[in-house]
């Protein structure tokens, strides 16, 4: 077990009150496993990633309670200084937009080299070899040449690989990727996903893949947690999520994604909007949009039910 998150609560304290962006979620990621967190914007998936990195915008964003156990250490209890040493070395992160993740005035070699120097005690003459090694891991062609180039000389796909190289520079145990493929084109996306699998094979890194795109989930994730309004409402192996989803939200979401090999005349659509995080419904959060809601759904939040070794669902309909 590389990462174990237990009952994590993260809130933002704003002028208008407390927003419970992540409201009690638990999951784990094993070595060499890719765990997907899927959900719509505002469901708390990115906040989950930032909480693990302890990179919430302070002072408004705070971890209120819960445990984040990475390699046996509870990150919530680490001091800021300790956490800084962990970040990049044991856990690192790739953000969505490769264009803004790189500093335009430094060369690729400088930026990857900085990450290497920060956490590895290498003599200066070894740093460059290490940088080339990482660039090669990310399958960047001609790394010796790229070293001296600036971000503007690279294409979008290549920049995203450099961002990946920075994240992987110290061979972390856990990599959090927050929508890393969303800004990429379909054919480049396919390349990038294949690259992720390759890196995982070589380094055994555990990956948390945050996305809203079920197509990407199907391709890369081993297990998936579906988030809705700050909660994980269903966790299951990827195959089961697609073949046998249990929660009405998951079912509806998968039905509403248009698929290439099926031509329906009308798409199945979920009516209404996700609830405002300032003003959550009393019972189950999905209840107002749910077609199969029971009376109890309006009153009480459903508990998380473990239905098999790898599956759990929070729905009153699932026993």
């Amino acid at each position: 077990m590389v990462l174990q998150v237990e009952d994590l609560h993260t809130s933002f304290f704003t002028k208008m009150g407390e927003v419970k962006a992540v409201d009690g979620i638990s999951f784990h990621v094993r070595e060499r496993e890719t765990f997907g967190i899927v959900g719509e914007s505002g469901c708390g998936k990115s906040v989950t990633g930032l909480s693990i990195m302890r990179l919430l915008p302070e002072p408004s964003g705070q971890i209120v309670s819960g445990k984040i156990i990475l390699e046996g250490k509870n990150l919530v209890e680490l001091s800021k200084k300790h956490m800084r040493a962990y970040r990049g070395k044991v856990v690192s992160m790739i953000l969505q937009d490769p264009m803004t993740s790189l500093n335009p005035v430094y060369t690729i070699g400088d930026q990857v080299g900085e990450a290497v120097r920060m956490h590895q005690d290498l003599p200066e003459n070894m740093v460059e070899a290490e940088v080339i090694d990482v660039l090669r891991l990310l399958r960047i062609p001609a790394p010796e040449v790229r070293l001296k180039e600036y971000p503007f000389q690279l294409s979008g796909g290549m920049k995203q690989r450099v961002v990946g190289a920075i994240a992987m520079s110290c061979r972390p145990r856990l990599l959090i990727a927050d929508e890393p493929t969303t800004a990429l084109d379909a054919t480049i996306q396919a390349q990038y996903i294949a690259l992720f699998e390759d890196i995982q094979e070589k380094t055994n890194v555990a990956i948390i893949f945050i996305t809203h795109d079920f197509g990407v989930v199907a391709r890369i994730c081993d297990r998936v947690g579906v988030m809705y309004a700050g909660k994980i409402i269903e966790t299951a192996p990827t195959r089961d999520i697609f073949k046998n989803p249990k929660h009405p939200y998951t079912i509806a979401l998968i039905k509403s994604v248009p698929q290439l090999d099926k031509k329906d005349d009308r798409l199945f659509s979920i009516e209404g909007q996700p609830p405002s995080m300032m003003n959550l419904p009393k019972g189950c959060r999905f209840c107002p949009r749910c077609h199969v809601a029971l009376d109890i759904c309006k009153e009480q939040e459903p508990p998380e039910v473990k239905i098999s070794e790898n599956r759990s669902v929070s729905c009153w309909r699932v026993k």
Binding site: E40, H212, L253, S256, V257, P258, L267, I270, Q273, P274
Partner: peptide, 11 residues
């Protein structure tokens, strides 16, 4: 748009 909203708009 969000995944759950796309189908509404396309319809």
């Amino acid at each position: 748009l969000d995944v759950s909203i796309r189908a509404q708009i396309m319809n």
